[in-house]
Design a protein around this nucleic acid. Structure first.
Length: 254
DNA sequence: ATGACCGGTTGCACCGGA
């Protein structure tokens, strides 16, 4: 079972890349973030024509998440239950017995901003939600754009990123709090080359220089983790013409 | 130090992204 996370930075601009990914990589589940489209502007017909199932939580302009799966998506839940917000950042569903939570964590802009405080509050609510889910589901995975580089190894230039948004101690502590619920950072189960990243700035040839950071994650429950086979960053999709600034990232289970 | 590249729009300049 292959599960993929991908911040597409506009589903309509990235549709051809997505269709190519579905055909070539044949993921069982893919969680998309930053659709930047309301549900009625999502290219549902084109994607369902491939035989994949779709569950949507879109909004105009910003945010927006979706689950796409080779088998039916059951018990779909949108957003963080009980957390008051209009931002469409979370969608959860069950595919082939695995509960998949797909999230687009707020960026936070900079550590002095109100958006940063919102990010920290959002993470507290999200963590409580995941704690509840981990009691409910043994086969559980939370995937998405976390907008957190968990450690200095996840940043091309730790000195210049120190204390900056995505790398503050508070964000990293929030990430550790999620892991402490019993999740495995699947891309780190096996050793990966130094400089394994998932996002590269469009500016200044960030990808060509591998000036990246690792902020897209697939965190599995320990029970699901026993089925772990492999994980990978799909650099070839970041190298395409007119790419998203994020690469797809996958984990494969038995 | 600044802006650099994208996508979307309350659109031809801006905001948000990371």
């Amino acid at each position: 079972m292959k599960i993929t996370t991908w911040n597409v930075n506009s589903i309509n601009v990235r549709l051809t890349h997505l269709l190519s990914f579905l055909e070539t990589e044949k993921p069982d589940v893919i969680g998309l973030q930053e659709l930047k489209a309301p549900n009625d502007k999502f290219p549902l017909i084109e994607i369902e024509a491939t035989g994949y199932h779709v569950a949507l939580n879109g909004q105009p302009t910003y945010n927006g998440v979706a689950l796409i799966a080779s088998q039916p998506i059951d018990d779909v839940v949108l957003d963080i239950p009980g957390f008051d917000s209009d931002e469409k950042r979370v969608i959860a569903g069950t595919v082939a017995g695995v509960r998949v939570v797909n999230a687009y964590v707020p960026n936070g802009q900079n550590p002095d901003s109100d958006k940063y405080q919102y990010k920290l509050r959002w993470l507290v609510a999200f963590t409580a939600y995941l704690q509840q889910l981990s009691k409910e589901y043994a086969q559980l995975i939370v995937i998405g754009d976390f907008n957190i580089a968990p450690a200095d190894d996840d940043v091309h230039n730790p000195a210049s990123w120190k204390g900056k948004i995505l790398c503050t101690d508070q964000e990293r502590a929030a990430f550790q709090k999620i892991l402490a619920l019993g999740f495995l950072d699947t891309l780190r189960i096996e050793a990966k080359p130094k400089g394994t990243f998932t996002w590269w700035d469009y500016r200044q040839g960030g990808f060509e220089k591998n000036s990246g950071i690792r902020i897209d994650h697939l965190l599995s429950s320990k029970v699901l983790g026993r089925r772990y086979q492999s994980s990978m960053v799909h650099l070839d999709y970041r190298a395409l013409e007119r790419p998203s600034d994020h690469a797809p990232v996958s984990v494969v289970f038995k």
